[in-house]
Amino acid sequence: MPASTPAFGESPVARNAIVILAVIAGGATLYFLAPILTPLALAMFLAVMIDGFARVLQHRLPHVSKTAALPLAVTISLVLFGGTAVFVAMNGAAFIGQLVAYGPKLDAVIAQLATMAGVKDPPTVVSLIKGLDASKYLGLAARAVQDFASTALFVLVYLAFILVSRKGWERKAIGLFPHREERQEAVTAFLRIRGGVERYLFVQTVTGLMVAILSFIAMFAVGLHDSLFWAFLIFLAVYIPVAGGVFAGVAPPLFALVQFDGYGHAVVLFIALQAVGVIIGNVVYPRMQGRSLNIDPVMVLLSLAFWSAIWGLTGAFLSTPLTVMVMVILAQFDGSRWISVILSADGDPQQLKNKMPNEPPDEADPPPAKGPLAKVMRRRPKAA
């Protein structure tokens, strides 16, 4: 008897084709809805950061109760963000003015590079600026400032509503997953996403501070102007995979080449910053990161390109945690698990490799649910 032909939805080829089309449609939707979704994504990751910070405060400070931990974390976070905004406002104008003062030195560097390249009449900085459409770029800059202000406002509004509506998600989880097994799988996936994002933010923040402090020491030692502001820019750049490290190691030496006569200061600074990047990136970062993310390095580059193309600078900052979230979610479904396997570093996106019965869980395994999550997993829906 001939084997029955599988239905269209049951065919592996058709199922994979549907998944690929869904990914393309999802990417297009994310691109066109970027003005709405980027503030929401930023607010969600800020909420995860604040929630993790609140649990750290509750654990480290015995006198801080569970009720007071979240307001305290929100207050400290707002103070830090406000202080950062004041620092940028106070130092940004001076930093840009210093760059403008480098005009004659930039002309000399351009002339040297043009001579090496065989160009007879090298352009000057002034001629390059005059060749630009000033009104066009001023309009773009004004629009960018306006978009940043509106985005920051929406992020704060979204963040406030997310923090206020936290308890409502418990009842929603019970309604979405009435069976305890399904609810437990959903909570486990959520814990893995939350743990990966929190781990990523913690490691990037600590290593970013280390890179920024060591870079500041090197820049201050050679006498680079605005060393503190450069350190701040390096700290922010570390959150962008690959590109942030290139900026941290290359941009300050380039401006040292303009600021100082000769190449000595720039070469010394370049060697020092490269040493900082190699030590932090190859020794400290892997030890802190461990297996918590489990993303293939090639996929990190591709995710950076993908999310940057869709959401711009916001996508570049959030590319790695967004990929972690996508990988964990896709691993929950048979039709999309192969994409999750490709994204993972070891082919095991859920990190459920066989272990001995008495083997303790590794750092990448999600911790057992506690508090509200444990109640959600145990609670049963009310009978109709």
Rank of each mutant, 00 (worst) to 15 (best):
Met1Leu: 14
Thr5Phe: 05
Pro6Gln: 06
Ala7Met: 10
Phe8Arg: 12
Phe8Thr: 10
Phe8Glu: 10
Pro12Ile: 05
Arg15Gly: 15
Arg15Pro: 02
Ile24Gly: 03
Ala25Cys: 14
Gly26Cys: 10
Tyr31Asp: 03
Phe32Arg: 13
Ala34Lys: 13
Ile36Cys: 01
Leu37Ile: 13
Leu37Asn: 02
Leu40Glu: 05
Leu40Asn: 07
Ala41Ile: 15
Ala41Val: 14
Met49Arg: 11
Leu61Gly: 07
Ala69His: 05
Leu72Pro: 03
Ala73His: 03
Val74Asn: 01
Leu78Met: 13
Phe81Asp: 04
Phe81Ser: 11
Phe81Pro: 03
Gly82Gln: 04
Val86Trp: 11
Val86Lys: 08
Val88Ala: 06
Val88His: 05
Ala94Leu: 11
Ala94Gly: 15
Ile96Cys: 03
Val100Ala: 12
Ala101Asp: 12
Gly103Phe: 03
Pro104Leu: 00
Lys105Arg: 13
Lys105Ile: 00
Asp107Cys: 06
Asp107Asn: 13
Ile110Ser: 01
Ile110Gly: 00
Ala111Phe: 01
Ala111Arg: 10
Leu113Val: 09
Ala114Asn: 08
Ala117Pro: 00
Pro122Gly: 08
Val126Cys: 00
Val126Lys: 10
Ser127Gln: 13
Leu128His: 06
Leu128Met: 14
Asp133Ser: 07
Leu138Gly: 06
Leu138Phe: 09
Leu140Tyr: 15
Ala142Gly: 13
Arg143Thr: 15
Gln146Ala: 14
Phe148Arg: 06
Leu153Thr: 15
Leu156Cys: 13
Leu159Cys: 11
Leu163Met: 12
Ala173Met: 15
Glu182Ile: 06
Glu182Arg: 15
Arg183Gln: 12
Arg183Pro: 11
Glu185Pro: 00
Glu185Ile: 06
Glu185Phe: 04
Leu191Ile: 08
Val197Tyr: 07
Leu201Phe: 11
Phe202Leu: 09
Thr205His: 00
Val206Asp: 02
Met210Pro: 05
Leu214Met: 03
Phe216Ala: 14
Ala218Cys: 09
Ala218Leu: 09
Asp226Gln: 15
Asp226Pro: 08
Leu228Val: 11
Trp230Thr: 00
Leu233Gly: 04
Leu236Ile: 09
Leu236Thr: 01
Val238Tyr: 04
Tyr239Phe: 15
Gly244Cys: 01
Phe247Met: 13
Gly249Val: 12
Gly249His: 07
Ala251Gln: 07
Ala251Met: 15
Pro252Cys: 04
Val258Gln: 05
Val258Lys: 01
Phe260Met: 05
Tyr263Arg: 07
Leu269Asn: 08
Ile271Met: 10
Ala275Asp: 02
Ile280Lys: 04
Val284Pro: 03
Pro286Ala: 03
Arg291Thr: 11
Leu293Cys: 07
Leu302Pro: 02
Leu304Ala: 11
Phe306Glu: 02
Val324Phe: 00
Val326Lys: 00
Ala331Cys: 05
Ala331Glu: 06
Gln332Met: 10
Gly335Ile: 04
Trp338Tyr: 05
Trp338Phe: 10
Ser340Lys: 00
Ser340Glu: 03
Gln351Trp: 04
Leu352Cys: 01
Asn354Met: 13
Lys355His: 07
Met356Val: 01
Pro357Arg: 09
Glu359Gln: 15
Pro360Phe: 04
Pro361Thr: 02
Glu363Pro: 01
Glu363Met: 08
Ala364Ser: 14
Pro366Ile: 02
Pro368His: 03
Lys370His: 07
Ala374Ser: 10
Lys375Tyr: 13
Arg379Lys: 14
Pro381Phe: 02
Ala384Cys: 03
